[in-house]
Write a protein that binds this DNA or RNA. Sequence first.
DNA 1: GTTCTTGTTGCTCATCTGTCTCCCACGTCC
DNA 2: GGACGTGGGAGACAGATGAGCAACAAGAAC
Lengths: 350, 350
Amino acid sequence: MSNKNINIKDVAVAAGVSVTTVSHVLNEVSYARISPKTRDKVRTVAEELGYGPNRLAQALRTQRTGMLGLVSEDIATTPHAGRIILGADEAAKARGYNLIVINTSGSASLESRQADIAALLDRRVDGILYATMYHRNVELPANLGSVPSVLVDSVATGGNITAVIPDEEGGARAAVEALLAAGHRRIGFLNNTDDVPATRQRLSAFRATLNEAGLDGDAAPVESEPSEVQGGYEAARRMLSRKDRADMPTALFCYNDRMAMGAYRAAAELGLSIPDDLSIVGFDDQELIAANLYPALTTVALPHYEMGAWAAEHLIDAVEGKTDLSLMALHPTILGCPLVVRDSITAPRQ
Amino acid sequence: MSNKNINIKDVAVAAGVSVTTVSHVLNEVSYARISPKTRDKVRTVAEELGYGPNRLAQALRTQRTGMLGLVSEDIATTPHAGRIILGADEAAKARGYNLIVINTSGSASLESRQADIAALLDRRVDGILYATMYHRNVELPANLGSVPSVLVDSVATGGNITAVIPDEEGGARAAVEALLAAGHRRIGFLNNTDDVPATRQRLSAFRATLNEAGLDGDAAPVESEPSEVQGGYEAARRMLSRKDRADMPTALFCYNDRMAMGAYRAAAELGLSIPDDLSIVGFDDQELIAANLYPALTTVALPHYEMGAWAAEHLIDAVEGKTDLSLMALHPTILGCPLVVRDSITAPRQ
DNA sequence: GTTCTTGTTGCTCATCTGTCTCCCACGTCC
DNA sequence: GGACGTGGGAGACAGATGAGCAACAAGAAC
């Protein structure tokens, strides 16, 4: 398809019919009565000429562009953004849509983000996906509301916009349960210091899961540091340098893979071998880290691909009138965070 | 700007002038003679109404969409893709263009990649950026030629399409020179086994740089493995387990940061401390790894952001007739790979 | 057996989407 | 009657869409 410079009129002339007929045939207009012979002729000619409709003209007339705007915060900083884009792109492509991707920074002014949305609206996108790079409450540009939109990986401060987010609690639960299942009873948590939902939810799930296993979740050791490698290192040093040996955790649940990476180093320095002396679970499944640490890190995957695909899918449904987004806007949709088993968990010694 | 549903006619009516006049004023058409009063009036009204031109109609009329297609191979696999997109997006945005991003897989069939290009052409993008995720020769879809295009991070097998690639040799040279400058004389190279240009070019630059320093580059030790962490580990084990201690390298140049990560582990196992016993330089500057290893890895950065920006910039120049891409197509443009100094290099012992 | 009505089938015409741009019109002042 | 200053009209871009027009057949009325 799509030899530029061939338009519907060329096809009409070559097939010896009117433009209208070509349009009717190619769009399979239901009420159009056209003989099978003519239909064949039109289709054959269109094919031969390599005709593809000019989507601009089409969009102008039908008031539908088949384009979705994807504004993504900090696209380059994390590999997560790529997975969201990939999921959205594949879902969109499967339904004949394309993505206009615009990068914005999480620290960008509201005006600049508003300008990005405006650019998308000027292009008459059918809907907008607004993706943030970590699950938190965001303040949305006001003009976002003028077109169907879905939030990816965050919820809006004002509420009432459809959103998909990861199941932080479920993921944390899965991580802790994996440690419990391996036989661990003294489990520590290296938490983040940022005030984001994930921090609170992973912590509460951590405690709750321990409580449900008959342990004292509220007494379980937690050390908080910034969620980087260095923070993980320091939190782990503190936690693993406890006075009483019998008190020391045999397993660590880390807020993310980067902190887990720091914990690996702390363990190495303290002469603790992973997983024999210390089991570790991470969170995020940043493959570059998780798969490449030694031993490879068992961790919880964030469903970025799935969130991107879910968002695109439902946005398109809304655009096509198959769904009412406002109904879904009441509560964010929560997608599971599966455990990715590698080699960093085993039974505790003895 | 861009309150949907407000069109130029609304502005014309509200301002009490014709559509033509509004168009003339807003586009600052040079030959249009319109009184300052009228101009003010039109602009004020347009502002008040929140008018923004419908880019679709504009594009249909002017035969220019202000959109660039970016087809990116394996967008989600590496963070590099994000940097290319970011560079391209920022350069494009600065000139009023937007990007339609389409993902494709490096292993996708030529037809499927051709279909992606076709979708872009149907949307009448002004030009196409074709980004691959590692610098190699690619076979391009034939329909790419029908619109100005630029290859990012690779060169075409057929040649004669403008391309930007990283300066592999310069980067390797910088890495080796950093080791030489620190005083190292016995330097090993952990190379990749893939048959890509980078493999050959980094190797030849490695040898050449040593030769120029008065050393015997051709005798310098090289171990090749797949360019992953595990490969780096194995190559480093072999290289660092040489019979003769006096023969052992005091510094390692690694094909990429992942291999360097493997080398770190090998060094740790062999009781070699980095950088005191062994200096290491990587390549790629994958921040997640390079900045987070301990000690932080000195490495060579690939100019992905810069390549994306360069490509968008020159593509737009070509679209706007300011540049003739075919002139640049003769030789790929080469962008520098700067050394990123961290903590993994120091002077050799004694 | 002819003419008229009615119904189908097959396809086309006119109009619309929103914007740009070439060309023309009108008035005024020398 | 030009020159100048101001502004408007009518396509054109490429396609979508619904009303409507021929052509023909079958049945009805005479």
